[in-house]
Structures are given as C-alpha cells and as structure tokens.
C-alpha cells in the first residue's frame, strides 16, 4: 500500500467496458461500438406518454473523438475544482486563522482559558485545511498543475513503499494527459506488492504523444494503467520478462 496515497474509488473519466489486457502491441484502437438507432418516444406536443420501459429512448454512445473530448474535459473540470478549493475555501479559512490570531492577541494575558480555546479553534482550522489539501490532491494535485509531471511524480515516488526512480522531460502535455499519467502511476504503485521494485518511471514526448513507461512492475497490473489512459484514446503495451516487465502507455495530447 502506498502511504499517503489513496486512489480513487471511481474514475470519473472511465468509459464503459474497455477491452481487457494484455492486448496486441499497438492495440487500443477504438472499441467496436453498437450504435443503437434512437427511438422516438415523445410526441410533437412534448407530452410525455406513459410508455412501457422498453420504449424508453437511449442516447447513442458517443463516437471516438467525442468520447476522447469528454475524457479531456473531465480532467479540466477536476483541475478547475482544485483551483476553486485553493482560491475559495482554503483562502477564506487561512484568513480566518489570521483573524483568530488577532483576536487571541487582544485577549488580556490573564484570560488563560479563553486563550486556550482560541488556540484550540486555530488547531481545528489547521486540521480542516489539511483535509482540504488531501481532497485537492485527489482531485488534481496542485503541484502537477503548477510544476508538471516531474516534480509531481517525484513527490509520489517519495511516498511509495517501493523504491521508485523517476526520469521526466521538462515538457508539458496538458492537464488531461498529465492527469491520466499521474494517476496511472499512483494507482499502479498502490497495487504493487510490498517489497517489490525497484520501479523505473520514465516520461517522454514523441510527436504530440506522452509516452509513459513503467519498468520493473508486475505487468498483470497493466489494466490499472489502461483504465486511466484509454478514455483519452491512449494505448497500453506490455513487455514481460519473467514476472516483472515494462508497461508502456501512450497518451495523445491536445
């Protein structure tokens, strides 16, 4: 288990039913889709008829590019939420902590009980801020937003139970690809058996594609990586060599 890292129970960018791994090298083409013909259920007047359930209208599954766009938008929304937490709630609570400090300063020196109460309130506010930071980190790590994959992945590596070595380029890849790569690494490190490793994480750029390779890992966990990168139209390749091997993910960037 990865101390300090708690994965998402749900991946908001997940699509329904991706193909199981391991796939053929270069796999991960668009999934075959069955686009069901939409059935009209309402009438022109807009009245909702008392239809039996089998006549309900199903929205057609979005086509490849539209799905990828939705996948990207989910990451942008996550980043916006993190910024909103930082600029909104967190800043207000920090300011409140200052106001309490001012209040504490104005309390006469002989009012020990009151002073201790204010100290206690301030400690509570600090705990609230820490919880907000934890939540923000799970939505979209601010360090990833501000400094990119290199610093963010190194921070993740520092918290891992297994030894992890990170090599990255200074290139930026956009919020979606970076988010998917970051959480793919985080989720993978979280499922590795304790005592395994060392793991080498390498991030590279190639023709508008983020290439993430993870070496020294149990390749049966490739699905964890696939889960993150496929909604963005990414692919995952596996090269195994006796238990551990290399998982390589390619994520298209905007």
């Amino acid at each position: 288990m990865l101390a300090g890292y708690r994965g998402f129970g749900e991946n908001p960018t997940r699509e329904v039913g991706f193909a199981p791994l391991p796939g053929p090298p270069g796999g991960g083409q668009d999934l075959p889709m069955t686009l069901e013909p939409a059935q009209r259920t309402g009438d022109a007047s807009g009245h909702r008829p008392a239809d039996p359930p089998d006549r309900a209208e199903r929205i057609p599954e979005p086509a490849g590019e539209q799905r990828r766009r939705q996948g990207r938008e989910q990451w942008l929304r996550r980043r916006r939420l993190e910024r909103q937490l930082h600029d909104g709630a967190a800043l207000r609570i920090s300011a409140l902590s200052l106001q309490l400090g001012l209040f504490r300063h104005r309390v006469p020196a002989d009012e020990a009980v009151l002073q201790e109460s204010i100290d206690g309130l301030q400690d509570e506010l600090h705990a609230v801020l820490q919880e907000l930071r934890d939540v923000a980190g799970k939505i979209y790590p601010p360090l990833l937003d501000e400094a990119g994959l290199g610093p963010a992945l190194r921070e993740l590596a520092d918290r891992a139970d297994v030894p992890v070595h990170v090599t990255t380029t200074a290139s930026r890849f956009g919020a979606a690809a970076e988010g998917a790569a970051y959480f793919a690494v985080g989720e993978l490190l979280a499922v590795l058996a304790p005592g395994s490793g060392p793991v080498a994480v390498v991030v590279d750029a190639a023709d508008g594609v983020l290439v993430l390779s993870l070496t020294g890992v149990d390749t049966r966990h490739a699905e964890v990586v696939d889960y993150q990168v496929r909604p963005l139209g990414g692919t995952v390749d596996v090269a195994a060599g006796g238990g551990t091997g290399t998982i390589t993910a390619r994520i298209p960037c905007e």
């Binding site: 609570i93 920090s94 902590s97 200052l98 309490l100 400090g101 301030q122 506010l125 600090h126 801020l129």
Partner: peptide, 10 residues
Amino acid sequence: KEKVGSVDVL
C-alpha cells in the same frame, strides 16, 4: 499561510 496566524509565530 495558516501557520503564521499568531503574533508570536509571525
């Protein structure tokens, strides 16, 4: 930010 919220610490 929140840790400098007392006269003494500041």
